[in-house]
């Protein structure tokens, strides 16, 4: 169990409404120092709204935020000195070169010139730094956005969907860079994504948000241990079978094929289900129990716990 002083980000009942719509609802984030925290959720789950509140871009409707162990006060921007950020797409001036974009930020914050080369080197952009940004590919823009986030040598990096718009090679490259950051620079990374594979391959800790609610928070190991096995069930009347099992309280999903996915606790559950379906004159031709992938867990959390 982590010590409370080790939370880089800690929120208490953090909420944000837009009119009558609750975008973020009483979430308690706990981001450990030195972790890569994957903030996972489908589009519209409340990830960007949460990040905007953490950065002071919008105000919470309710709740509080602690950053680096200190309460976040409105108009207090000093805490941002320790944060590097890329929210959604990178914010770049296309009429300037990569290096000039870095220089704009360097001048604004008042950093030494050497920070530019250091940050560009971190994302392998030294070679292309003198080209105009409007000539950059999407991958180069994302990397420059990451360099901008690293220019002040932050202790916390907040990245919102950093692989958006990248091709598979670019995604892999971005993942590798993010994974290396805590080891190389001692940075804590708070990373939002709707891509399970990205989070699974990058993060050491995970938070799952859906429709503004926090569904899970903890380490990847915790998440794996919490997952129930999945029964792949094939029958001649899948609709009837699904209805019958749901009525009996089982968590059932359809996987697009004739088969059903049922959350079970063990083999005794499988035998019970088989018996129950047979008694209802439903013929069962497949019963396979598998440990669920992260994707199964995510679907369990977002579609069933809803």
């Amino acid at each position: 169990m982590e010590n409370h002083h080790e939370w880089i980000i800690q929120t208490n009942q953090l909420s944000r409404n837009f009119g009558k719509v609750s975008a973020v609802n009483r979430i308690n984030l706990e981001v450990p120092a030195g972790s890569v925290y994957g903030f996972l959720g489908p589009n519209g789950a409340g990830k960007t709204t949460t990040i905007r509140m953490l950065l002071g871009l919008i105000h919470p409707t309710f709740g509080s935020i602690k950053m680096f162990g200190h309460d976040l006060e409105p108009q207090n921007w000093q805490y941002l000195k320790q944060i590097g950020t890329m929210v959604e797409s990178p914010s770049l001036y296309p009429n300037l070169t990569g290096r000039e974009n870095m220089e704009v930020t360097r001048r604004l914050i008042g950093l030494p010139k050497s920070n530019i080369d250091m940050a560009l080197d971190n994302v392998n952009m030294l070679q292309a730094a003198n080209r105009l940004v409007k000539e950059y590919s999407m991958g180069m823009r994302q990397r420059l956005g990451l360099a901008l986030a690293l220019i002040n040598q932050p202790t916390l990096l907040i990245l919102d969907e950093p692989t958006n718009g990248l091709d598979p090679a670019g995604i892999q490259e971005m993942r590798d860079m993010i994974r290396e950051l805590p080891k190389k620079n001692g940075v804590t990374v708070f990373l939002s994504s709707h891509l399970l594979s990205e989070v699974e391959q990058t993060a050491s800790h995970i938070g799952i948000i859906h429709e503004g609610h926090m569904l899970f928070q903890g380490s990847l190991e915790n998440l794996r241990s919490e997952r129930n096995p999945i029964l792949h069930l094939g029958s001649d009347h899948p609709e009837r079978a699904a209805e019958l099992l749901k009525q009996s309280g089982w968590k059932v999903r359809q996987n697009g094929k004739p088969g059903l996915l049922v959350e079970v606790n063990g083999n005794s559950d499988v035998a019970f289900i088989n018996r129950k379906l047979n008694q209802a004159n439903i013929n069962v031709f497949q019963l396979t129990v598998q440990q669920p992938s992260l994707e199964d867990t995510f679907l369990q959390l977002t579609t069933i716990k809803k």
Binding site: L55, G56, W77, Q78, L80
Partner: peptide
């Protein structure tokens, strides 16, 4: 260029 979210997240008044 959606710079506001970046500018306002910088440590400057």
């Amino acid at each position: 260029n959606q710079i506001w979210k970046y500018l306002y997240a910088l440590p400057i008044p």
